[in-house]
Design a protein around this nucleic acid. Structure first.
Length: 264
DNA sequence: GCGACAG
DNA sequence: ATCTTGTCGC
């Protein structure tokens, strides 16, 4: 996978103001509408090989990315799926330069993730990140930032909401439920277009809800790059298996822990 | 000053 | 994110 915009890659040593201005450039470059090389409906977790008889084609390559941490090092893991089959796994251990600061996550975790993605042989059609995409103060969260660097369709899947306002109360919703997340005052304009409450920057999505106890919180999904908010939820639902997190993310999460164990 | 915040 | 025992349920 080649970086189309290496000049926009998160790099260490920038001041807070420089990081924010780089994020504004990323947001200007990002495309929040569908520009895909595959049909979203072809996304599936079913193991479907090529069926010459019907002319079926292989499902798209989807990469799940997640990290685990040791002291001041990050273990970045990437798991690539084609349908429900794992076709490649890579990981990288990198030194962390910055602390976690809300809104600047891509500068702490982005570099380490690029280290892992550089080891990838396959060329994913879609990147699924653990964190926000467009749901971000400058509409340039981790998923947007790295998706733009590679100019590959990307999605952000977060377990909590960074900013924006859900249309409806998200508590105790049934499986499959979803509601738009709209821009609020904390979300900056992009491309001369102000971010108004009409701007849908993501969706709250209840991927799972077990009959029993603890009410499960919804996922907060948002476009990273080259997908609309609507297609983003659709794709995440297609990538959902038996757990709360979409399968690529869940497998990357497990692999990050597995790899981490080798270094401690 | 208050609020409030991905991983 | 990470530190952690037990506990409920399929």
């Amino acid at each position: 996978m080649r970086q189309v915009h290496p000049e926009l890659a998160p790099r260490p040593g920038l001041s807070k103001a420089e990081m924010e201005s780089l994020q504004r450039r990323v947001a200007e470059t990002a495309v929040f509408e569908d520009d895909l090389s595959f049909d979203p409906a072809s996304i599936s977790l079913a193991d479907s090989g090529t069926t010459t008889l019907t002319g079926d084609t292989d499902p798209p390559l989807v990469a799940g990315i997640d990290q685990s941490f040791l002291d001041d090092r990050a273990v970045s893991a990437v798991v690539v799926l084609r349908g429900g089959a794992v076709v490649e796994r890579v990981h990288a251990v990198s030194e962390l330069d910055l602390p976690y600061v809300p809104g600047l996550l891509s500068f702490r975790e982005g570099g380490p993730i690029l280290d892992a993605l550089a080891k990838l042989d396959s060329d994913p059609d879609l990147l699924v990140f653990d964190g926000s995409g467009r749901v971000h103060f400058r509409q340039a969260g981790l998923a947007t930032h790295l998706g733009v660097v590679y100019d590959v369709p990307s999605i952000g899947v977060a377990k909590s909401l960074l900013c924006g306002t859900p249309d409806e109360d998200v508590d105790g919703r049934p499986e499959g439920w979803q509601t738009p997340i709209r821009a609020d005052d904390s979300v900056d304009a992009v491309g001369g277009h102000p971010a108004t409450p009409e701007t849908v920057i993501g969706y709250a999505f209840q991927s799972r809800q077990y009959d029993s106890r603890p009410i499960i919180n919804p996922l907060y999904v948002s476009p990273g790059h080259r997908l609309s908010a609507e297609t983003t939820v659709d794709v995440v639902s297609r990538l959902s298996g038996d757990y709360k997190l979409p399968e690529p993310t869940r497998l990357a999460d497990a692999y990050a822990d597995e790899a981490k164990a080798q270094y401690e």
